[in-house]
Computed example of a mutant assay.
Amino acid sequence: MSRFPRRWLWAALTVPAVITAAGLAVLTGGIEREIAANVHAALPEVTVDVHGRDVVIGGIQAERLGKAREVAAGVEGVREATTRDPELGPMRMIFAAGQVTVTGVTGQAAWRDGFLTAIGEQSHGRRIVDETKTVAGTDFPITTEAARAVVSVITQQPEDMTVAVEPGRVMVAGVVPDNARRMAVVTVLRRLFGADTVVDKTKTKE
């Protein structure tokens, strides 16, 4: 067989395959764009990456990711929804001198402002001193509701205390007048975060 028939045979076999692959790429791209649009319609504030029918969402607070993942998984066309979790940096709440000083990092100024406003509502008149920073791709390692509960219980007693939070570990330190007040604080923290997570370094004056 001459080289020409061989070339024609090769073309006859490969050209349809190339056309089919190109068509599938166009079709897949259209499906991915449709899925991304559907997810954005349900969750306007998230970032969305689509791979086939699987989506990865991010760009929102860590405390909202679980619910957002459930919503995304229920969107038409989505096979599986996962999240791109922010880096949870350590934070500290220092209760002293009639104020609560908060340090830590979170991804957006609006998240930080909402967090600080929420805990300020539970501070029993203590001033909130904001020493937090905005750093892309990060978030506080504690939910807003948990922080509200911590601030509420600790600001009800006058002694200086510190709560340091990092992923998987919550340390509370300070000296309180008696064991009943100490246990009131520690019990709330253990209920919120789990007994194995809380490191109790409090002491009493007794």
Rank of each mutant, 00 (worst) to 15 (best):
V48N: 11
E80R: 00
M1A: 11
A11E: 10
A11T: 11
G114S: 00
V48Q: 10
E45T: 09
T204A: 05
E80Y: 14
A149F: 01
S123H: 03
I128K: 04
V102L: 02
G66A: 12
G52V: 05
H124E: 09
D85W: 13
G107K: 01
V172Y: 13
N38V: 03
A68T: 13
A11G: 10
I154N: 01
R126A: 13
L27E: 12
V163G: 03
S152K: 12
D113S: 05
A73V: 14
V100W: 04
V172D: 03
V15F: 11
K201G: 05
A42D: 03
V199Y: 02
Q157Y: 07
V55D: 04
V198W: 13
W10Y: 12
H124Q: 00
T117P: 08
I128V: 00
F140P: 01
D160H: 10
A37M: 04
G23Q: 02
T155Q: 01
G174C: 10
D196S: 06
T204I: 04
D54I: 01
H40P: 09
Q61R: 02
D196G: 04
V46T: 14
L88F: 13
A36D: 12
G89A: 15
V186S: 08
A110M: 01
G174L: 11
R169H: 15
N38W: 10
T106I: 10
E121S: 08
K201P: 02
H51E: 06
M1T: 11
P86Y: 01
E80G: 04
G98L: 04
E45H: 12
L116S: 01
N179E: 14
P44Q: 07
F115S: 06
K205P: 09
G120K: 09
V185R: 12
I31S: 07
P16I: 15
A195D: 08
V105L: 10
G30T: 11
G74R: 06
M1K: 11
E159K: 07
E63R: 01
R7T: 14
Q156K: 07
R190I: 07
V48M: 12
L24V: 11
T187A: 15
I128P: 03
G77C: 08
F95N: 06
P44N: 07
K133D: 00
V75T: 03
V15L: 10
A37H: 01
I19P: 03
P158E: 09
I154F: 01
E159F: 07
A195T: 13
R126C: 07
P5D: 02
R3N: 09
L189C: 10
V56F: 06
K201I: 11
S2E: 09
A37E: 13
R64N: 04
D113Y: 08
V135Y: 10
V46A: 02
S152C: 13
E32T: 01
A62Y: 11
G98V: 15
W8N: 14
A195L: 08
V75S: 03
V170L: 09
L13A: 07
T144R: 03
V150G: 00
T187Q: 14
L189S: 08
M171E: 14
T117N: 13
P16A: 15
A96K: 04
D113I: 00
V135G: 05
A96L: 05
K201E: 09
T143R: 07
